[in-house]
């Protein structure tokens, strides 16, 4: 029961997905679409697991009086406050469940949480990449071997391709950069993609056949 049923489920659904690809008939398409719907719906149930885990880890930190418990409290309060405003809102002057309309959720607070907290933090973290890419380039600079030098040289050529201060040299650089992006890039990407394809296909096959079962706790 504990081991066999999951393996049977994997085999049945895995084989079905492979076979349905060759059956254009609508009955096969319906089942395919339903299965994808199921996965999305189960995913939402799983969010409950996630929230529970987040709650438990932080609650434990607080109850065990760990040094950083203040931050855990901040996390829990913001989590529950957002969830509260995600479900309840002041609509027409009184509190109640708020509903999803054509322009999204009605809750004022909920939308502000996105607009003024999630979005600025998100784009700032994203923008940190500018600094990190610089320090990564510096790191590549210091590495002294053939491979790292090749990487750095190609990176420099591509980075300098729009530089207006280089004069006539700039034209050569931008030509070389375009050639790099069109020729070796194409070759390497194709080799990588074929390799990845084979790796994925082999792994998926092992999963379907029940050889690879780390996902259910048996490596």
């Amino acid at each position: 029961m504990k081991r066999q049923i999951p393996l049977v489920l994997v085999l049945i659904f895995g084989l079905f997905m492979v076979i349905q690809y060759f059956i254009p008939h609508e009955s096969s398409e319906w089942i395919y679409e339903y299965l994808l719907d199921w996965i999305t719906i189960i995913g939402v149930f799983a969010l409950v697991l996630g929230i529970w885990s987040l709650f438990k880890v932080n609650y434990d930190k607080i109850s065990q009086r760990k040094p950083d418990r203040g931050y855990s409290l901040v996390l829990l309060i913001s989590l529950f406050a957002t969830m509260f405003f995600g479900f309840f809102a002041k609509v027409d002057g009184s509190w109640g469940l708020h509903f999803s309309t054509a322009d999204g959720l009605q809750s004022y607070m909920y939308r502000h949480a996105y607009e003024y907290i999630i979005r600025p933090i998100q784009s700032t973290i994203f923008s940190l990449l500018a600094f990190f890419i610089a320090s990564a380039a510096y790191r590549a600079f210091r590495a002294r071997n053939v491979l790292a030098s090749l990487l750095l040289a190609a990176a420099l050529i591509v980075m300098l391709r729009f530089n207006p201060y280089l004069g006539p040299l700039g034209d050569y650089i931008s030509e070389a950069a375009n050639w790099l992006l069109n020729v070796p890039n194409l070759a390497a990407k194709r080799a990588i993609v074929i390799g990845i394809g084979l790796g994925m296909v082999a792994t998926a096959l092992k999963v379907i056949l029940g050889i690879e079962r780390s996902y259910m706790g048996k490596g």
Binding site: L151, K189, I192, V193, I196
Partner: peptide, 21 residues
């Protein structure tokens, strides 16, 4: 594929593409 270069630069060892599998 687009992220491999960053790992190559910042990590001590990088498994490229199929090597992960």
């Amino acid at each position: 594929v687009a992220q491999i270069p960053f790992f190559v630069v910042a990590c001590d060892y990088t498994l490229i593409g199929e090597e992960l599998y």
